Amino acid sequence: MKAITTFLASALLAFSLTSCDTEIVIGDGYNAPTLNEVLASSEVWYVDLNSTQGTPNVPFMTRAFTLSFDFGTVYANNNLVGVGSAGAGLGIDVGSYNAVNNQLAILHDIDGLHDFEVIVRAYDRLELRDLHNNTRYFLDGYDRANFDYDQLFYDNVQYFLQEYQAWEKVYTSNVGAINDFDRENYLRFFPGNNEDIFESSQDRNGLNSSSLFWDYSGDYTVRDQSPGSINKQLTLGYDFIWNDYFDLYIVDDRTIEMYHIDSGTTYRFKGRGYIQLKNASSVNSTKNRMLDYNRAMENKK
């Protein structure tokens, strides 16, 4: 039944688009699609945060990569670990919603009630206007079969690194010159106000992340080795000391490999203490996409 309903909604939505050049008017389901039909016409809605107009201060909107609306339940892909498989591609249950006319009320399990006016810009493009502060969010619709989860992952590796409480070094190659990084056994990554932050520890292996002493800190950046590459370059900028440069490879969603460019040494790290980004009490619960948004706003000036 759901598949038939979704098909009919998509057909009506597509017909509405080809019938006029203006935005789609949400209607009664006969002459124009209802808001519920619009929301169901795509299985996942990518949150295009960088297109936001106004100040994005709804936490679940700045945290989510995608949202899905399924018979009253809101799902979100907040994490990159397991993205594409968690919730069969929809992510985790984060709340409920109610759609009446062009008004969408989302009751988030942590962030509470938020009300939006929905404007349909295209069959796969929604504008959500926050009725509290007039901020406008934009969502792009996809079916799971044609949404590129791999691209989402590799475009956001800097956030993937923040999804574990610590990364423990489990391998150091015999090849490569001795260097200071040989002594560092743990890394952790988390968001800062103006830049992403890392810390490193020289504590012995096998410790719980909560008992580690963090010896060094600084900012970190992740960039493509070449445009569009799945392999990355990681720069660790130690405060008041030096920068370390690595080629960064994602082995799987719990394992990374770092090739130290100056010494020629390869290190492998395992993620310890996975952080599911829903609960406000979670470690790193402040993780969101605002740093990218702020950079995008700077580039527009």
Rank of each mutant, 00 (worst) to 15 (best):
M258E: 11
S41P: 03
G176F: 11
G218L: 08
G206Y: 05
N98K: 12
D253G: 02
G82E: 06
E199Y: 07
R144E: 06
Y186P: 06
R188V: 00
M297D: 00
S226M: 06
H260V: 08
L67V: 07
V74E: 04
N174C: 01
Q276E: 15
F213Q: 01
F69C: 14
L12N: 11
I92H: 05
A76T: 00
Q202T: 15
D215S: 14
A177S: 07
I119Y: 04
K300P: 03
A296E: 05
S41A: 04
G89H: 09
D215I: 08
S96N: 14
W242F: 10
K232C: 05
L234W: 05
T221H: 07
E37L: 10
T172V: 13
K2M: 08
P56G: 14
Y159T: 06
E199H: 08
G29Q: 08
S201T: 11
G87M: 04
G112E: 02
T221S: 15
E117M: 13
Y293K: 10
G206I: 09
V283H: 09
G72V: 01
L207I: 09
V170N: 12
F69G: 13
N208W: 06
N279P: 05
M290G: 06
Y274A: 07
R125K: 03
A11E: 14
D196M: 15
Y293N: 06
V83P: 05
G72Q: 01
N156Q: 01
D21V: 01
R121K: 12
R183C: 09
Q103H: 15
S281L: 09
